[in-house]
């Protein structure tokens, strides 16, 4: 008889992580010369790139708001981002993710500073491995800061899931597809939740535990986002230092 496949053995998951361990994250800021702000981000095997344009003039004109800027967010998956080629273009899923991601970010953006304008955010998923919406929100938040847009804080986003009746942080594709539940959240470093979704089944206690675990994940991601923004500047400062030294 074949053994029953398990997701977790001796507290170690299929990809070698512990249950409360997130995938490695890599963040780069200012990767696109022609966007006002941009960010490239990897969360495990997820690869996303975010570009921010604006504030700029609104087209089509009728969308414009007299007293504030509008925020547009486009989440798009590249056709080559998944194993089986995906039909290009927006679908029901990407419309929904665009909406919830926009609503996750817009509470911190000071739109009243730029009446009659638009802030455009484009997120392209280059490679997907569960948790692309959270990766997209993390990248978009750094790109917004890079564009010099006034915000109350950054937004960090992370998911928790349930596999083998255990709560795990940051599920990857196998755990997401065959697990019991998935709960992505987004929050400010102050702990205010701006996105909370869930599919699957969890008890009340489990959902509390999942929430706490995901919030811990968000705080770690926030530190990465913060570090990359701070380091970028000190790097520029050191570069000019070195130039001076050469002269």
């Amino acid at each position: 008889m074949e053994d029953k496949i398990t997701f977790i053995k001796d507290g170690i998951r299929l990809d070698g992580r512990r249950v409360d361990e997130a995938r490695p994250i890599k963040v780069e800021v200012g990767v696109l010369a022609r966007a006002d702000g941009s960010c490239y981000l990897e969360m495990g095997n997820n690869k996303v790139i975010a570009a921010v344009y604006g504030p700029r003039e609104v087209h089509p004109r009728h969308l414009q708001e007299v007293s504030r800027a509008i925020v547009r967010y486009r989440y798009n998956m590249a056709s080559f981002s998944v194993e089986e080629r995906r039909r290009p273009g927006p679908d029901r899923r990407s419309y929904e993710l665009s909406k919830v991601s926009r609503e996750a970010l817009s509470p911190v953006i000071l739109t009243s500073y730029f009446p009659r304008s638009v802030i455009d955010i484009f997120v392209e998923v280059l490679q997907a491995d569960a948790g692309t919406r959270t990766a997209g929100i993390n990248a978009a938040s750094v790109a917004l800061a890079d564009a010099g847009i006034p915000m109350k804080s950054l937004i960090s986003s992370c998911a928790a899931g349930k596999v083998d009746d255990q709560i795990v942080l940051d599920p990857m594709k196998e755990e997401d597809n065959f697990g019991q539940a998935d709960m992505p959240i987004a929050m400010t470093p102050g702990g205010e939740i701006t996105l909370l979704q869930m599919d699957g089944h969890m008890t009340v206690e489990e959902s509390h535990r999942a929430m706490e675990l995901a919030m811990k994940g968000c705080r770690d991601i926030y530190n990465m986002q913060r570090k990359v923004l701070i380091d970028r500047y000190s790097q520029m400062e050191n570069a000019t230092r070195q130039e001076e030294a050469v002269i």
């Binding site: 911190v108 800061a145 006034p150 915000m151 109350k152 804080s153 950054l154 400010t188 470093p189 102050g190 913060r226 923004l229 701070i230 500047y233 000190s234």
Partner: peptide
Amino acid sequence: MDRKVAIPG
């Protein structure tokens, strides 16, 4: 000492 990099928040 009186200058430093800040991020939103």
